[in-house]
């Protein structure tokens, strides 16, 4: 369970603990039923671990990420980063959505440094901006506006923007979901590189079983309505992982079976 064993780099990440979290969405009108999005969900993520959450649409994955991000609040239950309870959004928890959501009125450089501006530390940490531009390979695009970027490039900017405040936890909500298959595979390696360089605790929500197996140390399988963690599967394959190895494919069909056969 200790992620650090995989790598000798000291982790910047903190542990994440989700304890009996229930989220009920109020009914729109009196006739509609209240929607139980998450039902007493519990799990923990070790510092520096990369954990994927997979599950069908509408199983509350995004709701969970919003709760951890502090953008929404649980109906009951608690969430902790390290020993601190989550009470609202913070630069300690970086969030990247499927839509990169770059600020279209800012250049790539200004998008990346937005977090430093928000925290009022741009002057001291300006050199970080260049470091992150290099890290995501976009030095030549520093002064370009986002609509000139391809999907993969935009997502890399979004990653750099989320990482520049050195978050303890990185929350990725299907960040590669909108990319084509080839860009997606390349980006998976890039995200892994970013993760291995800093060992930020990372929670990756995805639809894609291959992506989950390829990237994560552990996979949480969620079931919908009400959303809860059905199973936790360790992925003990050596990195870099081979997408066509027998172990990979075995794991893949095992997970696939969980979704195709009715859950008892």
């Amino acid at each position: 369970m200790v992620a650090v064993s995989e790598n000798t780099v000291a982790t910047e990440g903190a542990s994440l603990r989700v304890k009996d979290v229930t989220k009920v969405f109020a009914a729109r009108d009196s006739t509609a039923e209240r929607m139980l999005a998450l039902d007493a969900m519990s799990f923990a993520v070790a510092p520096g671990e990369l954990v994927s959450i997979i599950g069908p649409s509408g199983c509350g994955k995004s709701t969970l990420l919003r709760l951890i991000g502090g953008l929404d609040f649980p109906t009951s239950g608690e969430l902790y980063v390290g020993t601190e309870a989550i009470t609202g959004p913070s630069s300690e928890r970086g969030l990247v959505f499927q839509d990169p959501c770059l600020f279209p009125w800012l250049t790539v450089r200004r998008n990346i440094q937005a977090g430093l501006v928000a925290l009022g530390v741009l002057r001291e940490k300006r050199s970080e901006v260049n470091y992150f531009l290099r890290l995501v390979g976009l030095e030549g695009f520093a002064d370009v506006y986002p609509h000139h970027l391809s999907g993969g490039m935009a997502q890399r900017v979004a990653l750099a923007r989320a990482l520049i405040t050195h978050p303890k936890i990185l929350l990725l909500d299907e960040p590669l979901g909108a990319l084509d298959a080839f860009t997606r595979m390349r980006m998976q390696d890039e995200v892994l590189d970013l993760w291995q360089a800093r060992l930020t605790t990372t929670l990756l929500v995805t639809h894609d079983i291959d992506e989950a197996i390829y990237m994560s140390r552990r996979i949480l399988i969620m079931t919908p309505r009400p959303g809860r963690v059905e199973r936790s599967i360790e992925v003990d394959l050596p990195r870099p992982r081979d997408r066509s190895s027998a172990e990979f494919l075995d794991l893949r069909s095992e997970i696939l079976k969980l979704f195709t056969s009715p859950v008892s």
Binding site: L71, P89, F103, A118, R161
Partner: peptide
């Protein structure tokens, strides 16, 4: 203003002044 812009800014540690002057107003331009 797209709620997602405001959400992203919040997770970057933005306070109210940043949300108004650096997100909502540019988005409204």
């Amino acid at each position: 203003t797209r709620a997602a812009y405001l959400d992203v800014a919040r997770t970057l540690g933005a306070g109210r002044a940043f949300l108004i002057f650096r997100v909502a107003i540019p988005a409204a331009l």
